[in-house]
């Protein structure tokens, strides 16, 4: 089983899209390490933020520039990961290795669980490294250890895990990486809030159908809002995050059930 998880992990590591993500994270770490400095006033508060040699008032930087940059960064990271998921899950099901793996002692359930674990383990480790690096850089520059980066990335990881199972399902059903990624974005982020808006105005029969669809979709919009609110309010609602866990199992079970039934013919 370890061999399979390691193999999937290796495939994620060598994936070109994931390499773009790694490069982006490395650039952010380099910028924060070498091109970001803080100047303190007499009371020990940060007065000026020095970035690429330019002096910016701390008030403006923390209230305007940092949130905008953070949202942009999270958006780019999410898009790259969602497209990577489409690519990785489609490959997981189209992998010609599957035929040979399945005739060894590996069952179909194990094959998919190992693939799913390998892919998501990579992003968990990636997020852990990235948030630790950011926290350490801030610690060495300010003598203040912040936990927001950890909370943000734990939150984002759970959000991505919910997306991951949906893209996994569509990657398996459609075997098309672009459409799977697109549905991965549209399904929970756009369709879910849209349904929640129209559900009250629909006729009773349609309302029931829409509600059923609504409850089939993980509450990702709430989760994403939570992730982003951390910057402003430090509010962290664990209950709503944990709500996604049953959804993760639900979608994973559907894939496992369907994969047990299909012919491995490619």
């Amino acid at each position: 089983m370890n061999t399979l998880i390691k193999y999937t992990f290796r495939n994620v590591f060598y994936n070109p899209l994931v390499n773009i993500l790694n490069c982006l994270q490395l650039i952010i770490i380099i910028i924060c390490t070498f091109f970001l400095n803080f100047i303190y006033d007499s009371s020990g508060q940060i007065a000026i933020v020095k970035i690429f040699g330019s002096n910016i008032l701390a008030n403006i930087f923390f209230n305007e520039i940092l949130p905008t940059l953070s949202y942009l960064l999270i958006f780019v990271i999410l898009i790259i990961i969602i497209i990577s998921f489409g690519n990785l899950y489609t490959r997981l099901y189209n992998n010609p290795f599957n035929k040979l793996i399945l005739i060894s002692n590996i069952s179909r359930v194990k094959l998919i669980l190992c693939g799913f674990s390998g892919i998501n383990l990579y992003f968990l480790i990636n997020f852990a490294f990235f948030s630790t690096a950011l926290s350490l850089i801030i610690y060495f520059k300010t003598d203040d250890f912040i936990t927001e980066a950890f909370i943000l990335f734990t939150n984002l990881f759970l959000f991505l895990l919910s997306l991951s199972v949906i893209i996994n399902l569509f990657g398996f059903l459609l075997k098309n990486e672009s459409i799977s990624s697109l549905i991965g974005i549209l399904f929970p982020v756009l369709i879910s809030p849209y349904i929640s808006k129209v559900v009250n105005n629909a006729d009773p029969f349609l309302e029931k159908i829409l509600l059923a669809i609504y409850y089939l979709i993980p509450p990702l919009t709430i989760e994403l809002d939570n992730s982003l609110k951390i910057y402003d309010t430090h509010i962290y609602n664990m209950d709503k995050i944990l709500l996604t866990i049953p959804y993760i199992f639900f979608y994973l079970l559907i894939v496992l059930y369907l994969f047990k039934k299909v012919d491995i013919n490619d």
């Binding site: 061999t3 399979l4 010609p96 290795f97 060894s104 002692n105 590996i106």
Partner: peptide, 28 residues
């Protein structure tokens, strides 16, 4: 069972030795 699929080309990017070691490990 041991199997050689037709049109055998599994993964263009994997080295021969890594491929064989991977399946050797899977076969225990």
């Amino acid at each position: 069972f041991s199997y050689l699929p037709e049109n055998f080309l599994m993964d263009k990017n994997i080295k021969v030795i890594d491929f064989l070691q991977f399946f050797g490990k899977l076969y225990g």
